[in-house]
Every structure is written in C-alpha cells, then in structure tokens.
Nucleic acid binder design. Sequence first.
DNA 1: CCCCAACCGTA
DNA 2: GTACGGTTGGGGG
Length: 994
Amino acid sequence: MKKGDHLFLVDGSGFIFRAFHAIPALNRKSDGLPVNAVSGFCNMLWKLLTDARDTSVGVTPTHFAVIFDYSSKTFRNELYPEYKANRSAPPEDLIPQFGLIRHATKAFNLPCIEIEGYEADDIIATYARQAEAIGADVTIISSDKDLMQLVTPNVHMYDSMKDKQISIPEVIEKWGVPPEKMIDLQALTGDSTDNVPGVPGIGPKTAAQLLEEFGDLDTLLARAGEIKQQKRRENILANAELVKISRQLVTLKTDTPVDMALEDLMLHPQDGPKLIAFLKAMEFTTLTRRVAEATGTDASAIEPAAVPVEWGAAAHGPDLDKGEASGGPAAPAAAEPAKLDAPKAATPAGARESEAFAIERAGLFKDQPIDRSLYETIRDIATLDRWIADARETGLVAFDTETNSLDAMQADLVGFSLALSDSRDTGRPGTIRAAYVPLGHRSGSDDLFGGNDLAPNQIPMAEALPRLRALLEDPAVLKVAQNLKYDYLVMKRHGVEVKSFDDTMLISYVLEGGIGTHGMDPLSERWLGHTPIAFKDVAGSGKSLVSFDRVEIDKATAYAAEDADVTLRLWFAMKPLLAARGLTSVYERLERPLVPVLARMEERGISVDRQILSRLSGELAQGAAALEDEIYQLAGERFNIGSPKQLGDILFGKMGLPGGAKTKTGQWSTSAQVLEDLAAAGLELPRRIVDWRQLTKLKSTYTDALPGYIHPETKRVHTSYSLASTTTGRLSSSEPNLQNIPVRNAEGRKIRTAFISTPGRKLISADYSQIELRVLAHVADIPQLRQAFADGIDIHAMTASEMFGVPVEGMPSEVRRRAKAINFGIVYGISAFGLANQLGIERSEAGDYIKRYFERFPGIRDYMEATKAGARDKGYVETVFGRRIHYPDIRSSNPSVRAFNERAAINAPIQGSAADIIRRAMIRIEPALVEAKLNARMLLQVHDELIFEVEDAEIEATLPVIVDVMENAAMPALSMRVPLKVDARAAHNWDEAH
DNA sequence: CCCCAACCGTA
DNA sequence: GTACGGTTGGGGG
C-alpha cells in the first residue's frame, strides 16, 4: 500500500444488526430462511465496489476488508467484567445470517477478518492507523459513534444507509467535540447498550461543554472541584475511577495483532461465477442480474452455491454435500445411522421460528379468497409484455401450460397461465393476479368441414413463444409449477428450456411423503381448503371429452388461471417449511435437479423393434390357443379362463378340487400359488391354467401393448416417470411401465430382446449389486455383513453359513435359497407368516429361522426395533440422506394395520436410501459424461439399474465413467461402511446387456 | 363410464 | 414380509 491508496474498512458486525432492523424480516429466501441483513449487506458491498465514486464517499477503493467481531468475550471483559453483560441474545432470525454474511464476503472476493479476543472496532482502528501512517486514505463503512474517535483528515466514515460521509465537521456537529475528544466524551457519558459506566447526569451535551471548558478528561478530573454545579461536581468526583476505566473500555486498540498485512487487503477483481453462485443461492434476483451484466457472466449457466446454514446450537437437518458445490474439501465423515432410540434432539430455536413464519405466510392470502372472476385473459402482446415485465420485476411467477394431450411427448401448447404476487419484494402480503394466455384455441367443432380455424383474438404462437422463452429461461425469475416435468417437456419440445424453478408437487413430496397424494387438487384441499375446477368440468370426460383447444376461452381462463393461482399459493404455504424442517437439502439435492434429467430421458425414449414383438405376439397367441383347447377338454366345458370367478367355480365348485386359500371377498383364490400347489399334486388342469396365464399376460401387457406406445414421429417408446408417487422415494414408470419388463424366465426375457439400440450404438445396462442389503449392512452396522461385502463374498451363502453352520464351499443350493429368502424378508420387515409362505414351510419353522437369524445378527433386530420405535414416536422414518417417510397409521389400534405399517417403516429407510443413491447417480451422470467428452445418453431407470445408449466407439470409455459415478453416488454426503458395487455391460439389446 | 378386485410383471 | 403399474373381469351407476 502506498500514499494515495484508499482503504475501505467495513464494520461487518455493526452492519448486520443495523441492516437486520432496517430491512423487513419478511425479506426471506423462498424456503423461509431469513436473509434481510444478508441482502442489505450484499447490495451495500456491490454499491461500494462498483459505484463508490458516485456516492458521497466520492472515491474508489484500492484496498478493502470486511471486519467482524469474533465472539462476545474480549480483553475488555478482563478490564471490566460487566462490559456488554446486558446484551441479550440476538434475534433468532438473525442467527443464521451471521454465517451467511461471512460467506457473502468471501463470495465478493474480499478479506473476511476477525480475531479472537478483539472487537471488530479494534481491528478497524489498527488498520486505519497503519494505513494512515503510510499516507493512504481510509473510509470506515459504519455510522457507529464508537469508531468516530478514529476520524482524522485522512480517515473518514461513511454511513451507507444514509449515503452520508462522516468527517471531522460531521463529528463536531453531532457530538460537539472533535474526533480526538470522542474517547473522553464517551468515558463521561458511558454507554448503556455496551454497559459502559459513565457519570450519572452527564450526557453528550454536558460532556461536550465540560470538555470545551477544561480541554480534556484528565484536566477535567484534576480540576473537577472547580465545577460550579454542585450535583455535577459531586458525581464526577465520586465516579472518577470508574470514568478512567470507561475511558479504557472505549479506547480502541491500534495495535491489534492482525494476521493480514495491508498489502493483503488489495482489492481483486470480482469472480463473477463465484459471486453469482452465492447470490443465486440467496435468491437475490436483481443483484444477480446486475452482477451478471457487470462481469459479463452468463448467470443462467451457474448453479446456486451450496451454502451451509447454521441455525445456532442444534444441527438443522442433514447438510448434504456440505462444501461439495463450493469446491471446498469433501467431508467424508461417516454419517451416523439414524439413532432412533436416542432422546430426541430439542427443536432448534431457528427451526421453531421458521415454522411459525411458514404458518404465518401460509395464511398470507386468507383474506384474499380465490376469485375466478378476477382472472384476466391476455389477448394482445402489449398486455403480455406487461405481465412478463412484472414477473421479472418481482422475480417470482407461477406458470402452467395448457395442451391438447396428457402425454407430454405428444402435447401441443394451447395456452399458458401466469400468477404473480409482489409479496416477496415488498415484505407485505401482496395481491395475487392470475391470467390465461390462449394461443391455440380453435373455433367450432372439429367435424370434417372446417372448424379447425384458430379462434379470434389470440396472440400468434410465433410472437408469444419468444416472449415466454425470455421469461422461462431467465435465471433471475423463479418459476413455480405443479408437476413441472410435464411443462418442462412440453416447453422443451417448443424450443424453450425452463431455468430456475420450484415444483410444488415435489415440495409436498418432501414435506409429506407418505401422507396423501401430491396432485394439485388434493394439495389445494389440504393447504388452502379450496376445491379447484375439475378438469372434466371444463373438457368433459369419456366420450364427451374434448381436447383443451376446443374449450371455450372464458372457461379455459377460469380453469387455467386458477391452476397458476393455486400453485403460487401452495408455494407460499409450503416452501418455507422445507427450511423449517431441515428438508431443504433433500428437496434441492434429490428432487428438484432430477426434473430436467428425467425430462431428457423421457424425451429420448428407447427404440423398440415392432417386428420382434409382432412375431412374439403370434407365438404367444398360438401357445395360448393350444392351451385353451386342452383346458376346455380337461374342464369339460368352455368358459372365460381369464375370469378368476368362473375359473374358481369350475375348479373348486364343479370339479370339487380341494380349495386352497380364499380372497378378501370370500371368493376362491386362483392365484398362481394355489394353482402351483394343485399342479404339484399331479393335476393337469391347474398346470395348463398357470401356463395360459403366463402367455396371455405376456401378450396383453407387453407384446400387444408396447407397439401402441411407439411415438409416431420419433419411432421410439417414451415412458413417463413419476417423481412423487411412491412413499419411499423410488420413481415409478407408466405409459408404458418400463420398470416391469419380464426378466425372470426365458419366455418373458424374449420381450427384452425387442428393446434395441439404433445402428452404430449399443445399450449399456449398469445395475447395483445387492444395494438394499448393502444399505442395511450400513445403517444397522452389522460386522459380518460389512465384512462379507468388503471381501466381495456371496452374501446369501455367508448368511446361510452363519445361521446353519454349513461351510460356504459345497453348500447345498436349498440351504442358500432359504438364507436368501430370509435376507429379502429382513429387508421387507420380516414376519414368520410371510417367510413361511415364501419358503413353503410351517410358520413355526419360519419363526425358528428368524429367531436364529436374530441370534447371529442381533444388530439387525436392534435396528428393526429402533426403527419401529422411532416411527411410532415421530410418525416418520428417514433415509440416510434425510428423506422423511411418514406412517400416520403406525399407531393404529388395529393390530394388522399396525403390523403392516411397522413392516413398511422398516423397509422404507432401506428401499428409500437405495432410491436416493441412484437419484444422486442420475443427477451426476450427465455432467460426468460431458466432462469425459462422451455422448452416452441415459434412457431408463429400473430402481437399481440405469440403461444408456452409447456409440459403439465410446463403449469402452463410457463403462468406467458410469460405474464410477454410480459406485460413488453416496459420497461425499455419506461415506458408507460398505462399498457399492455396480455391474455394467453393453449389447445390442436389453436382454443381452442385462 | 367408473371403480374395484384379482392377478402378475418388475426391483 | 416391501415398493410399484397394467390388464382383465365384473359390479354398479
């Protein structure tokens, strides 16, 4: 540093408190995290860094530092134990912001300085004097009177909130004394907030007058007897010693042992991406935009940083991948298994506060009932532009598409709706406005003679789409949707890629997994007590169903705008609860990022060979027909074999076979199990029925149905994944379900040969080996299981060996089969009844097995008991990543209902943790492939398996990338006690790849 | 036309 | 014993 340089010193700690009280507390992140002080801080820093010359500071800094108090205990407490003793704890909403402001400082590439045992003011004083000595100028960003003693011709202060420079004249004007006498003045007056004693009856005015008269404090104390006013004289004489202590307390140290030299405070250029990542994480949309513009950074390409939030004493939910996104060191410490039997941790104060806030915000619109008559239909570009400008101004918009099909791969855009509220930026409950923009509605009926014309007064699609794209692709505007994956796909097919979004369905899924469903209508009922217009009341149903482009525009407006309105209200109600319950990481790491990943998988689809299916269908038809003839012969009459009722009547009524089980409704059961038992007794007919069922099942469900799902344009099959329809966190697949394609026997596996790669490519199938048992070994921490997985030995054989004392070498297959059934049973929340069923043995024998198993693996029993107890206690269980799965019926008085819930509660953390792991792998795999410059495309997920389509030339390079990402998917959030193992191979069809 | 039960394919 | 979705038959409206 040299003469002429200009050092800015920001009083960070002082700023936090001032900004916190100056900016409305409703200024929060969308998940409820209070960020008002952080917001003010960032805006102030940005202003000073870019614009200081245009403020009343009038100069641009060359050096810059932000200074913080380290802790409340400093050397002053040794001097005077009562110093700052009357400080109360900071407000709960402020606590998490202390850490965030330090993160902000670092994001701005600024030194963040704090020293144990010293106050920020001492550090500031030290640097100010050092710089001044060199001949540099100093501006202290603070308006705290405690710092005014530092002001000189070269050292100034700046009140950033009032944009006011504080120099010598300003100090004199305010306090009546020049800066160098501020110490004496403060010593005389004391400071009630810091608990610094002063002289009773002496305030700033009197103190200034006395100092004017006597020159300085020492002279005043020496000649106090000359003071004319009796009371004042007595008070000063009585408190002379205390005043000397006060003077020491208020005198700032200018020799604080600072680590960083002045040179180190030199201002560096902003790191645009780093800063933007932080600002996005804080959801400061306006500042993000400004920084992006100023640094020439493409903000849309930057992911929000993972900023750890500390609520104070108690942990605040699992902090997934702390440091991962910020590029810091990984934290591979093994997470403890859920200690469900431990005393419950006290709810963090911050969490309580946030929950209260969430409830308050949920009720924000209570006095603003949903009124469909207020919805607007936007029919001209000027109005649309105004709405989009408003959305960009508030940074928040609910969005919903209306299309002519429920299938996102076929749907054409018919219109879209928007809902806005200005609540976020004003900190007050705003008015919700919602509108529908019809684009492709048609007039009249779609008969053969016309009626296909566009209805009048609609904005042309070609003019609306670019405007919509500007909004949806703007990373500074948070788009809120319900089941966004659908809208994301529709818009992607229209050339628009949504960036920055929230999905109310996924928020609900994270908050209330296991409680109800997460569709918009049930959510509206539960959270808003409002019943939205039913789709069928707008578009009809069944035979009278019309596509949405035939719906009259006024009706469409009421329906569509309401959807956006409700979605926005749901978001306001639910989003804050994520943070309040410590579930933000689950949502942001396991749910939200999967939306574009799944959308791309669905869009890609998989190639299915029509010819193979057609040939198989013929073979199956022939086989079934032959069996039908034999069945009618054996039964002595023709009947509908596919009707379990008719079949039961024939078998157990007419033919008088020994009936096995009965169904819930009292009918004879004709399940495969019952028929197999009869077949085992040598009966022909049941055998034929079982075979016939298999063939007709394959035919109707697969070979006949799949061709109907081949997309007319892509010629591929595009399944749809549901992110929020299982309780455990698994995905589900439908239309068609590609997660239940046969594999277990040769006949069924033929179906898989129809799933093929395009020429020049192959399919890679990569599946986790025994992932659920590995998760079990991890969470229950079972030494033998951990050892077996570490050594890579056959887990079922090991179990059998432990239980029955049989050596693994030369083990009879039946022994291993039983152990395998027990291992599976454990994962499913074993019961003697179920195991007996599975193995075809007596309940008592199954019970003995279980008993023996628990003797050998007592940790498993402990885990199961602890899981049940925890579920009973809290109403939910958790996966290793903190996903909650609720079991509201686990306390049912009905023993079978209760037992069922207990088994499900035992299974859920295991199945759910495995599901979370593959979710993480799926989120990471695409960036990893891009990084490796590979073109593999992920197509399908089948719970523990991922299917890719890969160019022939890249297969060898791709396999290890996929395996690596999958095997390490739990890291670094969780370092498992057992390794994950993935098998992967490539082939031209799914059967051979698997 | 809608819904449920039974059955069966997958992990 | 856990978690799903699809097909069929069949009852009720």
